[in-house]
């Protein structure tokens, strides 16, 4: 084959391959989306989660349910949602511990701790991905693997994620981790597979005190919209302008 023949071949080969691939891709895509997304229009929704800190009893059920629902690795340092315990002392010292990393036995053992009169405030804070309206993790992804859906949920495409960990670094809330089985970034999806069919996220389904409120900020009558009306709402790290959609009521200023 001489140079001329090669170039001729190339001119036809690449576009032809492209056409085939395109046909292939769109056929597969159409078949899938027709069955799974039927009747759901993401542009009608804008999801958020309310967290009433004063109601959390620290039972850790949300964390367990999240792991089961989403196949999050068992090891006690991979979380899509987790619970922190704050103990604020009179001298200003703040003790924060993640109770979700403890074993159930260790959590029960916390109950026998002697009273510490120097603690002036103590409470639990549920944490999760803040599903920011302006997500820094999406901006730093070099391959467009992490993105925001039209209904406001940040997802990671595990097929194109290259595991570079930029997003994990960029997340101000520590809400991402590298999934050891897929070797890709992993995070809370607001249980996208559940909420798009009208179910609650697993953590909200099991929360015994209604400390977590899932809702649609575009809805006319929604618990989350009233929640915003009834409470003074705080978000984590507001100065970063990430516009979190995890909305906290009764949030203590010490919570980072």
């Amino acid at each position: 084959m001489n140079k001329r023949e090669f170039l001729k071949g190339a001119i036809f080969f690449f576009p032809a391959a492209g056409v085939l691939e395109a046909l292939n891709c769109s056929a597969a895509g159409n078949a899938l989306s027709a069955s799974a997304t039927a009747g759901y229009d993401p542009t009608n929704h804008w999801y958020g989660m309310g967290v009433d800190v004063d109601r959390c009893i620290g039972c850790n059920r949300c964390v367990e349910a999240c792991k089961i629902e989403n196949n999050v690795p068992e090891e006690p340092f991979f979380f899509r949602t987790w619970i922190e315990r704050y103990q604020i002392h009179a001298d200003g010292e703040v003790k924060v511990e993640c109770i979700s990393t403890k074993t159930p036995e260790e959590r029960l053992a916390m109950q026998n701790e002697p009273l510490d009169p120097s603690v002036v405030r103590t409470f639990f804070v549920p944490k999760l991905c803040n599903q920011c309206a302006h997500p820094p993790c999406v901006q730093v992804c070099p391959v467009g693997a992490t993105f925001q859906t039209k209904d406001g949920v940040v997802l990671v495409n595990e097929k194109t994620c290259i595991g570079c960990r930029y997003c994990i670094q960029a997340c101000p809330y520590g809400a991402r981790f590298l999934n050891p089985t897929t070797r890709t970034a992993d995070k809370c999806t607001f249980c996208y597979h559940r909420v798009t069919q009208g179910l609650l996220p697993a953590c909200v389904e099991v929360c015994p005190t209604e400390a977590r409120i899932f809702g649609d900020l575009k809805s006319k009558a929604d618990r989350l919209v009233s929640f915003q009306r009834d409470n003074k709402i705080g978000v984590l790290k507001p100065d970063l302008n990430t516009e979190p959609k995890a909305l906290y009521a009764n949030l203590d200023g010490e919570v980072r």
């Binding site: 899938l32 799974a36 997304t37 993401p42 349910a65 993105f147 495409n157 999806t189 597979h193 179910l199």
Partner: peptide
């Protein structure tokens, strides 16, 4: 573009199995 991959991901995400029936 990453967009078609993202659309496919949304479809895959929505098809995931539910464990908690409600």
């Amino acid at each position: 573009s990453a967009r078609p991959h993202q659309a496919a991901k949304v479809v895959r995400e929505m098809a995931k199995p539910v464990h908690y029936a409600g």
